[in-house]
Design a protein around this nucleic acid. Structure first.
Length: 923
RNA sequence: GCCCAGGUGGUGGAAUUGGUAGACACGUUGGACUUAAAAUCCAAUGACCAUUGCGGUCGUGCGGGUUCAAGUCCCGCCCUGGGUACCA
């Protein structure tokens, strides 16, 4: 029989689906193993070859683990809410639910062809009311919770209210917004509205005013990547930052726990480092700087600093343009200049403000503060390099010891005073935390650390500041002015938000006429006719962001069809958390931090039993697109081949990569591709049109999306799976190309021939295998096992190739060898492996067969070939018995002719022998 | 700007703990089989020098350093990719 991959693959895919081979069920007799992929956003371009990269790796691991005796949970679903579907809806009027549904079907169809061992009975979609009921439910729990710093966990808001009723808030230590102290009496006399306002300071899901990108021209809030240089990419309208009342999640309450949790999970150091930096813990102090002004001597500027030791070098104060004291501090004659500056600065994105380190801008308010330690007068400036969202939005600037302050001071001629010795401040600031304090009053002569503590102690004694641990992490803005997201289970009464009753969930999205914001700039849901509770209260018109549905989906997979609870205790206690999570590193500071937070909250309220969701994380690299470029001569419907383009003035045009093979353009296809090019003409080289190449993101708009379908059609899923792994290390980014896929296909065919005779008839022999054959097999078992376990998926393919090459050379067709080979291969190329397994007479499915056991004795050697180096350079090899002592090795080597030649009669200075590795002779 | 990752033949990559650089493939060249093609098989293939043969020198982005030994460790730099809080 010929190797007919399309029939074989269809056959086994049908078999696994019908038999539900990969259905996972709780089984207390087996250890569990949970393998999760980051579920995809189903875009209109379909699944491209970058998606399955991680899915194939996780599938290999899942199949391998099953063969190692684990009960594997391996589910898949869809992150179905998102901007592109909404954008498409705005353009076409087509309901996002419809497009999303179509895209999901396409994704599923594509995934089915790759032969994944998912338990499809657990498929979830975040936009399915059956699923998002629990997203909304979680929001209600967040709303009804506060963070008690004393117990260090989230607690029910009722406990807090009870405390307020009996004792006021004096004993409360909570992660909350600033709240004035009140007594029980005061609390009890407040109106409901006042009480609710105070509770809002404590809730883990709360309303507050935050800045958003506001684009009046579009009447909407564009995402950061929809804005470039202050203008919307779509339409080019100006974008300003505007305060808007929005939901936030108090993730900052969990800063320390998010940081500490990193120590007990098996993630790469780099991604942990990214999260540590993102959380950004710093030890410092809050210090109040009084304002020099007769009328308002009570006012002060609160500053956060990590370098209290440098306070004698603080020569000015800088406020963020958004700072609430800016207005008060601006003297009349500076008003105009300052409001112009603020207007400009506010509309720059934070990224711009941080990135543009060389353009120094700022304005002087005209007011002064007093340094509370040195009692010096300090000018108060406003500059946009100080960010409102970090610390207190105000800094004491120490130009001698902070590079940004240094540049600023240099630019505006503010004095620079050295207070820590060790640098040369005439050239640059000295930022290092080493050195001896000078020019610094009572801390002169101290080192940085002691001085820092001394100043903070003093500040605390004086009652003008406190020691403070600050985190860079900010609360997560949780509202989106969009249609296509989970509705908030919230309604408004007298302007105060209340959550729906849990029995009213799910709250489903209403139909609307237009997906655009309303004419007065409200979110699309404001245009819905019946967006009110049965009592007539207005329901929240924002929707939840993308991370809402993806933050705890791993839990829902454990028990996806439970309608009475999120998931059962039983399921959670068995599956616990994810043992292996595979996905892109671009989620490092988004999904992967929100998800950990969300999970810790569910842990606090007793819902899940593990406080970290993902034990082991692997970040797959991004598959970049390889775009093909044609060069159109300006003002002419004429295209010039790549190597001739320099003779013309050209515009690059992205052409669909499906019309290009080995960089040669199919001109007929190109003409048919787009009506504009129907009559195009071409300047060729050697009769061909050669395209240029660009490596960039794989995206529909760049026409460089490679879908897996065509490759499966041509080579089969097994070859695709092997090839994607063979491309290189999973974690590395790499451009996609199909140049090497032929080699993998040849390997598969060569493997097939091992099990067949010259007439293509299945034939394996029952003879005893030879020593050599056993050695080849066991060498491979060892390598495959070790490499899969360390997630080195690409080298396994090489090992299998070497094995097949060597067995072919030995003309091995022994059943004992080939049976094990089929199992070794089966996690990578499951279809052909199952087929060969069945042809060998096995009745049961290969997927649950045990992985072959490695036996050391088959690969043992009596001799070892040593490379012999002279001064570190390899010169020749020598075969020696394994059990020689170092002295015997040295003697054996030095007496060889080869060694004599390289010694040139001299005595070696030193002979280094690393047993079983290398011999190095120093001359 | 800041944080993270990466840079090895013509190409994808291998070298797991500092120990033979280039495994395994692709491509290319030559050959076998064939009327021919496809498929398959065999051989060569880092660069340079030398060549009848034996050989030799250089070489892992660049510049330094540590070591008997550096792709791997340290210092400085260059380039590419990702993230930078409303893309998912």
């Amino acid at each position: 029989m010929e190797y007919n991959f399309s029939e074989i693959e269809k056959k086994w895919q049908r078999f696994w689906a019908e038999k539900k081979s990969f259905k996972a069920e709780i089984d207390h007799n087996k250890p569990k193993f949970y393998v999760l992929d980051m579920f995809p956003y189903p875009s209109g371009a379909g699944l491209h070859v970058g998606h399955p990269l991680g899915y194939i790796a996780s599938d290999i691991y899942s199949r391998y683990k099953r063969q190692k005796g684990f009960n594997v949970l391996h589910p898949m679903g869809y992150d179905a809410y998102g901007l592109p579907a909404e954008q498409y809806a705005i353009q076409t009027g087509k309901h996002p639910e419809k497009t999303t549904g179509e895209n999901i079907l396409r994704y599923r169809e594509q995934m089915d062809k790759i032969g994944f061992s998912y338990d499809w009975d657990r498929e979830v979609k975040t936009c399915d009311p059956f699923y998002y009921k629990w997203t909304q439910w979680t929001f209600i729990q967040l709303f009804n919770s506060w963070y008690n710093k004393k117990t260090n966990k989230a607690e029910n808001i009722d406990l807090l209210i009870r405390e307020f009723v009996t004792n006021g808030n004096k004993n409360i230590d909570a992660a909350c917004d600033e709240t004035e102290t009140f007594t029980a009496d005061e609390w009890n006399q407040m109106s409901e509205n006042q009480q609710q306002k105070i509770l809002m300071n404590f809730r883990l899901a709360y309303l507050s005013d935050t800045y958003v990108n506001w684009c009046p021209g579009l009447g909407t809030v564009p995402a950061n990547d929809e804005v470039r240089e202050g203008f919307s990419i779509r339409g080019g309208f100006p974008v300003e930052r505007k305060l808007m009342r929005q939901w936030s999640l108090r993730i900052t309450a969990y800063s320390q726990r998010l940081l500490d949790g990193l120590d007990k999970i098996d993630w790469s150091d780099s991604i942990k480092e990214i999260q540590r930096n993102w959380i950004g813990r710093s030890n410092g102090a809050l210090i109040n700087f009084p304002i020099e002004k007769e009328s308002a001597n009570k006012d002060y500027i609160k500053v956060f600093t990590t370098r209290a030791d440098t306070i004698f070098g603080a020569t000015f104060i800088v406020l963020a343009p958004e700072h609430e004291l800016v207005d008060k501090l601006t003297i009349a004659e500076n008003k105009e200049q300052i409001s112009a500056y603020i207007k400009k600065a506010k509309n720059r994105s934070e990224r711009e403000r941080m990135a543009e380190v060389n353009t120094i801008t700022g304005v002087f308010t005209g007011s002064y503060a007093i340094n509370p330690i040195s009692h010096e007068k300090m000018p108060i400036w406003i500059a946009d390099y100080v960010l409102y969202g970090y610390g207190t939005g105000a800094i004491m600037a120490v130009p001698a010891h902070d590079s940004r302050d240094y540049l600023f001071a240099g630019h505006f001629n503010v004095p620079i005073r050295e207070v820590v010795s060790g640098g040369d401040i005439s050239k640059e600031s000295y930022d290092a935390k080493e050195g001896i304090l000078i020019n610094s009053g009572f801390i002169n002569g101290m080192n940085v650390e002691d001085a820092n503590n001394a100043v903070i102690d003093k500040v605390e004694d004086l009652g003008i500041g406190t020691r403070k641990v600050n985190y860079r992490l900010r609360d997560a803005i949780f509202s989106r002015q969009r249609y296509w997201g989970e509705p908030f289970p919230v309604y408004y009464k007298d302007g105060m938000p209340y959550v729906l009753d849990e029995s009213d969930l799910p709250l489903e999205l209403p139909e609307i006429d237009s997906y655009l914001p309303t004419t007065n700039g409200e979110p699309p849901l404001a245009g819905a006719k019946e967006w009110k509770t049965k009592d007539g209260y207005q329901i929240e018109t924002s929707t939840m962001p993308g991370f809402a549905g993806s933050s705890a989906y791993y839990l829902r997979y454990m028990d996806p069809w439970n309608d009475s609870e999120y998931f059962s205790k039983e399921a959670n206690n068995y599956w616990r958390n994810v043992d292996l999570y595979i996905g892109g590193s671009e989620h490092a500071t988004g999904h992967l931090i929100y998800s950990r937070f969300w999970n810790k909250f569910l842990f606090d309220i007793g819902l899940c039993c593990e406080d970290e969701p993902y034990k082991k994380l692997i970040n797959q690299g991004m598959i970049q697109g390889r775009s093909s470029i044609a060069y159109m001569i300006k003002g002419n419907n004429k295209f010039v081949s790549y190597n001739l383009k320099n003779d013309y003035d050209t515009i690059p045009v992205h052409v669909d990569i499906n019309m290009v093979e080995n960089d040669i353009l199919d001109i007929d296809a190109f003409k048919k591709w787009h009506s504009d090019y129907k009559n195009a003409s071409f300047v060729l080289e050697e009769g061909k049109y050669i395209c240029g190449v660009e490596i960039e993101k794989m995206s529909k708009s760049l026409h460089n999306v490679q879908n897996p379908d065509e490759l499966i059609e041509k080579y089969g899923a097994d070859t695709l799976r092997l090839y994607e792994m063979f491309l290189g290390p999973l974690e590395q980014s790499k451009p996609w190309n199909t140049l090497g896929i032929e080699g993998v296909f040849r390997f598969i065919k060569k493997l097939w021939r091992l099990y067949h005779d010259d007439n293509n008839k299945f034939f394996v022999s029952d003879d005893e295998p030879t020593k050599k054959e056993l050695k080849v097999l066991h060498k491979t078992i060892k390598k495959v096992q070790e490499d899969i376990e360390r997630f080195s998926f690409n080298t396994v393919v090489s090992a299998l190739m070497i094995c097949v090459n060597e067995l072919s050379e030995l003309k091995c067709n022994k059943r004992i060898i080939l049976n094990d080979l089929a199992i070794l291969l089966s996690s990578y190329a499951p279809h052909i492996a199952e087929e060969l397994w069945q042809l060998s007479g096995h009745k049961e499915c290969l997927s649950y067969t045990s992985f072959p056991k490695f036996r050391e004795e088959y690969i043992k050697e009596n001799t070892i070939t040593y490379p012999v180096s002279f001064n570190g350079k390899m010169r020749f090899k020598i075969e020696l018995a394994v059990d020689l002592s170092n002295q015997e090795i040295e003697k054996a080597v030095l007496t060889t002719q080869d060694a004599q030649k390289w010694l040139e009669g001299k005595d070696p200075k030193k002979v280094i022998i690393v047993p079983k590795k290398i011999i190095n002779i120093v001359i």
